[in-house]
Design a protein around this nucleic acid. Structure first.
Length: 255
DNA sequence: ATGGTGGCGCGGCCA
């Protein structure tokens, strides 16, 4: 089973790239973030024509999540428990015994800001929901743009990013808290070393210089982690004309 | 270089 995540930064702009990528990569499940469109505008027919089912939770201009899949989604959920939030950042769905939690974690803007407080509160609520989901489902895959670089080796220049949003200690503690619930980072389960990133700023030729962060993740519950055979970043789409600032991350599981 | 680029949507916010 091949599962991928990709922050597309507008599905309207990136639809042809997504369809091309589905055709070449052939994932079973592709979780998208930052679709930036309302449900009325969602290009469901194009995606179904490509052989995928799709569920989505969108809004105008900002945020928006979707899951494309070979099989039909069951038991979808679009809000963290006890959280009234118009921002569409959550889409959970079941595919057989696999529970997928597709997340667009708040960026946080800058440490100390209101948006940063919102991010930490959001992550706390996510941890509670994840713990509950791990109790209920045999297999859980938590993936998406988590907007956290977990360790210094996930950062092109740790000194430059020291204490900054995406890298601050409270955010990293929240990431470790998710792992402590019984999840593993599939990328680190299999890969070693540094220089592997999933996001590069559009500015200052950051991609060409590989000045990026690893902030898009695929976390898996213990049994799935043991069955994970690969996890990698596909930099191909980031090299295209008019790319998203994120690249897809892809994990394969022997299930 | 307190900027830089990109998306949305048409001024300014967000990343």
């Amino acid at each position: 089973m091949k599962i991928a995540t990709w922050n597309v930064n507008s599905l309207r702009v990136r639809l042809s790239q997504v369809l091309d990528w589905l055709s070449s990569a052939q994932p079973d499940i592709l979780a998208l973030q930052e679709t930036k469109m309302t449900d009325d505008d969602f290009p469901g027919a194009d995606i179904e024509a490509a052989g995928y089912r799709v569920v989505y939770a969108g809004q105008k201009t900002y945020n928006g999540v979707a899951i494309l899949s070979r099989t039909e989604a069951q038991d979808t959920l679009t809000d963290l428990p006890d959280m009234q939030d118009p921002q569409r950042r959550v889409l959970a769905a079941s595919y057989g015994e696999v529970r997928v939690l597709n997340l667009y974690v708040p960026n946080g803007s800058e440490v100390g800001s209101d948006k940063y407080s919102y991010k930490l509160d959001w992550l706390d609520r996510l941890a509670h929901y994840t713990r509950q989901q791990l109790d209920v489902h045999r297999h859980v895959v938590l993936l998406g743009d988590l907007n956290i670089a977990p360790e210094d080796r996930d950062v092109h220049d740790p000194a430059e990013w020291q204490g900054m949003v995406l890298c601050s200690e409270p955010e990293r503690a929240a990431f470790r808290g998710l792992l402590a619930l019984g999840l593993c980072d599939t990328f680190r389960h299999l890969e070693q070393g540094d220089g592997f990133f999933s996001w590069w700023d559009y500015r200052a030729a950051a991609f060409r210089r590989n000045r990026g962060l690893r902030i898009d993740h695929i976390l898996a519950s213990r049994e799935l982690c043991e069955r994970c055979t690969s996890c990698h970043v596909d930099k191909g789409p980031r090299r295209l004309e008019r790319p998203s600032d994120h690249a897809p991350v892809v994990a394969e599981f022997d299930i």
